[in-house]
Design a protein around this nucleic acid. Structure first.
Lengths: 235, 235
DNA sequence: GACCAAAAACTGGTTGACCAAATATAGCGC
DNA sequence: GCGCTATATTTGGTCAACCAGTTTTTGGTC
């Protein structure tokens, strides 16, 4: 009987405010560089309290839609495109993404990171990567799970690539990867030895500035996971 | 004379709180899943007001370090790796990235998006892309700059790829691309005709499900920009 | 001691008043 | 009318008090 009841959508008031303000910008009522109405006026017009408007503006600032200038005002940035198509909600909501997309994208980033790392790495980078690899092995030898240490090694590679954007993007998707791996139990305990060997192989190629080899080693290393994502449908 | 004065760093108090809380987690004092001290206690211990603690926690939630449960408490999530190495500040701070890294990464993502779009696009995607392309041409024919419309076309491609993560990442770096392009005046007005032709070429390949061709067309399209970034040192 | 309901304490969320800096206005001297 | 300064207003930031749930403690009962 209760199944007949429709699920009602309880919209977060802050989200409603966000979409209103976003419309203000994307409709052209407020052009990039112009100031938004003050928090008080917005609150009054929308019939909500100032703190809620405040919270909404905070989020918008995070998304890069607006920039707040203390004691002066909130101005719309020129990045209208993000607001343009109601895409805001998509940004950083990768948690809804399917595992396949996640792995697919990860492989793409990782291969490029390995390639660039082989070209651009410095001695200090090699040290960092060695340390990360050691931490990973230590954790494993204690019989514990080491998903985070594993990924830390990969992030060190991204650092060695000297491409800050690449590293940032890897950091963005890393939490989701950790979650997925833990939830889906990707890491079978038996394969840890293989994993370590593969990590060492990658490190070696990067050390030798062999960009092609590093790319291939990384691709090989991630192959198992990728196959897993292709053949396995989560949920 | 004044040059001798050292630049003093005025640390944002909220950032200081963030790093303190982060240490609390990364040091292991608070394990994933455990609750943080209440906002009031944190405020008292740190000698600051609760609103500042509040603001800090808000940001930490955004970063995915903690999750707040209303009327219950704030709990640390299991994504320790991000907090582990003081990497937080890097996330989403792509604005500090150099133009070369930005373009390099963009090309990587765009090529993959084009490839996947050719494989996975549906009819509706083609419609969307056509509309975006039309909007771009209209804006240009009015003699106006159309950086945003340009990128919107590219985002539609990412949508057609059916890889949500890839699209999200493109959305993340898009604002920075817009900024860089505007600042560096990458888009010379004379080349718009060529650009339109290239866009059409990409669309055609995707329509024909020619993944290799789409990748190459995209690579060709972005070549000019990439060359620009290699030969030109910003600032 | 085991169990349970009532109440006290505690939680994050919200509010309206106040703060200092930035801005707009008014007034004055010329 | 013009240029400057002093004042008034507006701005986002901060704060302490309060709100409505949640959690813990408490006291009584069996």
């Amino acid at each position: 009987m209760l199944e007949n009841l429709q699920k009602i959508r309880i919209e977060n008031p802050v989200d409603l405010i966000i979409s209103q303000v976003r419309n203000l910008i994307s409709s052209g009522a407020i052009k990039p560089g112009e100031k938004l109405p003050s928090e008080r006026k917005l609150a009054e017009h929308l019939g909500v309290s100032r703190s809620q408007v405040r919270s909404a503006i905070n989020k918008l600032e995070f998304y890069g839609i607006v920039r707040v200038a203390p004691q002066s005002g909130t101005i719309a940035t020129g990045l209208g495109i993000v607001a343009l198509e109601g895409l805001i909600t998509d940004i950083l909501k990768i948690e809804n993404a399917d595992f396949k997309s996640l792995v697919e994208t990860r492989v793409l980033l990782e291969k490029e990171a390995a390639r660039l790392a082989a070209l651009n790495r410095e001695e200090s980078d090699l040290e960092e990567m060695k340390k990360a690899l050691q931490a990973y092995e230590d954790k494993l030898s204690q019989g514990e799970s080491a998903v985070e240490e594993d990924l830390l090694f990969h992030i060190k590679i991204a650092e060695a690539s000297k491409n800050a954007v690449l590293k940032s993007l890897m950091l963005v998707i890393t939490p989701d990867i950790v979650n997925s791996y833990i939830n889906l139990k990707v890491c079978s305990e038996s394969k840890t030895r293989v994993t370590i060997a593969e990590h060492r192989e990658i490190l070696e190629k990067i050390k030798n500035k062999d960009s092609e080899g590093a790319t291939k080693a990384m691709a090989f290393h991630l192959d198992a996971v990728q196959d897993f994502s292709k053949n396995f449908k989560p949920q």
